[in-house]
Simulated assay, not measured.
Amino acid sequence: MPELRRVPVNGIELNVALAGSGPAVLLLHGFPHTWELWTDVMAGLSDRHRVIAPDLRGFGASSRAATGYDAGTLAADAAALLAALGVESAAVVGIDAGTPPAFLLAMRHPGLVRRLVVMESLLGRLPGGESFLAGGPPWWFGFHAVPGLAETVLEGHESAYVDWFLQSGTLGDGVRPALRDAFTAAYTGREALRCAFSYYRALPESAAQIAEAVATARLTVPAMAVGAHPVGTALEQQLRPIADDLTGHVIEGCGHIIPLHRPKELLALLRPFLR
C-alpha cells in the first residue's frame, strides 16, 4: 500500500499517496476520481520510480479550497508539491481534469518536467478538438458549470451520479467495489460536489491560460498523448502543432478511465516512455 501524507502547498494541504523509489513520476487524476484512480499504475511503476499521486485541490482528502480551480493554480499546486517533496525533476502524467494543469506545468516549468503524458481531455480551445466537439461538448459540462445548481440537485444522489461516470468510463465494465465506494465517498456532500464542479466553472479561465501559454512558447519536453473512448486522437491533434517531440496512441476497446479500465495496456506505454 502507498504511504499517505498531508503536504502543505500553496496555501492548502494536499493528501498525497507515495510509493517506490527512483526517478519521480507525478500522477494527476480527474473527475470523479481521487489518487486511487492510479492504484494499478502505481503498483506497476513503483519498482523503478518514486510515484507521487495527490488528491487534487478540493478532491478526496485534500483541502476544500474556496478558489483556485483554474489550471494555472493547479499547476502551481503541483510545482509546490514537488518542491515540498524535494523533487527537482519529474515525469508528469495527467488525465481528464488533471491534463490542463499537467500541460501548463510543462509549459511554465520545462526544467522541472522531464516527460509529459496527457490523456482523455481537451486543452482549452486549441485547434484540433473540432471532431470531438462536433456534436457539442459532453452534456455534463454545461450542467456542472452553472454556479450552485448541480450540487443542489445532486445532494443525496451522489452514488448514482458517480456510478454513471464509472460505468460509462469503463464501457459498462465498472470498477472494483472498493474503488467505487472510495470515489462515491469522496464526492458525497454539497461541499465535495461544489469543489468538483468548480473545475468546470473555471474552464474559461483555464482555456485563457492555455491560449496565453502557447502564444509565447512551444511544448519542448518529450510528450505522449494517450486517447481512448471518447476523446480518441483529439488531444494529440491539439498538441501536434505546438509540440517539439510528441508521440500519440489510442488504446482500443478502452473507456475514458484508462488507468482502471486498461491498466496493463497503459503501463505498456508508460514504462518505456518514462524510462
Rank of each mutant, 00 (worst) to 15 (best):
P2R: 08
P8V: 03
V9H: 13
I12T: 13
A17L: 08
L18D: 04
G20T: 01
L26C: 07
L27Y: 13
L27A: 09
L28I: 08
L37W: 10
W38R: 14
D40V: 00
D40M: 03
D40N: 07
D40K: 15
M42N: 10
G44N: 13
S46C: 15
S46E: 15
R48E: 14
V51A: 07
A53H: 11
P54M: 02
G58D: 01
G60H: 12
A61N: 14
Y69E: 03
D70R: 08
D70S: 03
A76L: 10
A78H: 13
A78S: 15
A79N: 11
A79W: 14
A80F: 03
L81R: 07
L82S: 11
E88R: 15
S89R: 15
G94M: 01
A97S: 11
P100G: 00
A102F: 05
L104D: 10
L105K: 13
A106W: 06
A106T: 02
M107C: 14
H109F: 00
V113D: 09
R115L: 00
L116D: 01
E120T: 09
E120R: 07
S121I: 00
L122W: 05
L122P: 08
L123N: 14
G124A: 05
R125G: 07
G128R: 03
G129S: 13
E130I: 12
S131K: 15
L133W: 12
P137T: 04
E151D: 09
T152K: 08
V162S: 06
D163A: 07
G169E: 09
G169M: 08
L171C: 12
R176D: 15
A178K: 05
L179A: 04
R180M: 08
D181P: 02
A182R: 15
F183S: 03
L193P: 11
S206A: 11
A215P: 09
T220Q: 12
P222R: 15
A223C: 07
A225K: 04
P230R: 04
L235M: 14
L235Y: 11
P241A: 06
L246K: 11
L246M: 09
V250G: 05
I251V: 14
E252N: 12
I257K: 01
P263T: 10
P263I: 06
L266D: 06
L267T: 00
F273I: 02
